[in-house]
């Protein structure tokens, strides 16, 4: 039985896209497989919780241990540039992946494993009665530019900040945020404490924040989703396992877990 479990794990490693075997999660065998291999995944902070779930499923199915290291995308990229050992890289935007590609850190292809849309996060109960992006407009053409609600966004250097600017441009509104935060978590903190009336973040961020936040949809936001690209790293000691993990993210169980966490589907093609 021990040998067959090992063989199964090996088979999964060499068969990219192989569906998880239904009986592989059984107690003792699964424990035994833990020694088979281990991969390290550098994932964007917003993926932290869902990646932990998916990694457990993957380990149960394949016997390959997955270690998740999550932080801001730029921080992860900086670590990789300094030679941090990892197998899979999943930043929160494609610009970061392009920078990783031009630094020759990844092995093509890049796969989109999930997507996310921008929403307006408001404190629970929406005290400032914000209904749309137009309510945050501060241009002279707006209804009441002087009494605009306190808005916080991400700084333009951060992925969520670039997306906020894109949304504002698409809607033709001028935003005058009281703060341009360094990370999406800082925006969430300001809104959930009701220090700000509104913040522009991704839909999954609001879901993760629990009942302290409500979200207001931005009209047309689906038109410019934010993609999460995944790629195998050049320095990977287990490229086959790394590729297999990315396939698992795109498989039905992987996509289901991501959908349950509020992400839009990836790009299986």
């Amino acid at each position: 039985m021990r040998t067959s479990a090992g063989l199964l794990a090996a088979a999964l490693l060499v068969l990219p896209g192989c569906a998880p075997a239904p009986n592989a999660a059984d107690g003792q065998d699964a424990d035994d497989q833990h020694t088979a291999a281990q991969i390290t995944v550098f994932a964007a902070a917003s993926l932290d919780e869902v990646m932990t779930t998916v990694a457990d499923d993957y380990t149960a199915a394949s016997g390959v241990d997955v270690e998740i290291s999550s932080a801001g995308s730029a921080g992860l990229l900086a670590q990789l540039q300094q030679g941090a050992p990892a197998d899979v890289f999943i930043p929160a935007d494609e610009q970061t992946m392009e920078r990783a590609a031009s630094a020759e850190l990844i092995t093509p292809p890049t796969r989109r494993i999930a997507a996310n849309t921008l929403v307006i996060a408001v404190p629970a109960g929406n005290p400032a009665q914000i209904r749309s992006l137009q309510d945050l407009d501060t241009s002279p053409a707006a209804d009441s530019p002087e009494s605009s609600p306190a808005l916080v966004v991400c700084a333009e250097q951060v992925p969520c900040g670039a997306a906020a600017q894109q949304a504002a441009d698409a809607a033709g509104v001028t935003l005058s945020p009281v703060s341009e935060e360094l990370a999406v978590t800082d925006v969430l903190g300001k809104v959930s404490s009701a220090e700000a009336d509104a913040g522009l973040v991704y839909s999954t961020d609001v879901l993760r924040a629990g009942d302290q936040l409500d979200s207001v949809e931005i009209e047309g936001a689906e038109a410019y989703p934010n993609h999460y690209p995944a790629a195998v790293l050049q320095g990977s000691a287990q490229p086959a396992a790394a590729r297999d993990f990315i396939e698992f993210l795109l498989s039905a169980p992987g996509q289901r877990a991501l959908r349950e966490a509020g992400f839009s589907p990836g790009d299986p093609g």
Binding site: G72, Q157, P177, S179, E180, L182, G189
Partner: peptide, 22 residues
């Protein structure tokens, strides 16, 4: 955590450094 980050108002040098690092 408390003041936020806006150029010339609340974005001090350490915050600017952290942001530029991105």
């Amino acid at each position: 955590a408390f003041a936020g980050s806006l150029q010339g108002v609340t974005r001090t040098l350490p915050l600017e450094i952290y942001l530029q690092r991105e």
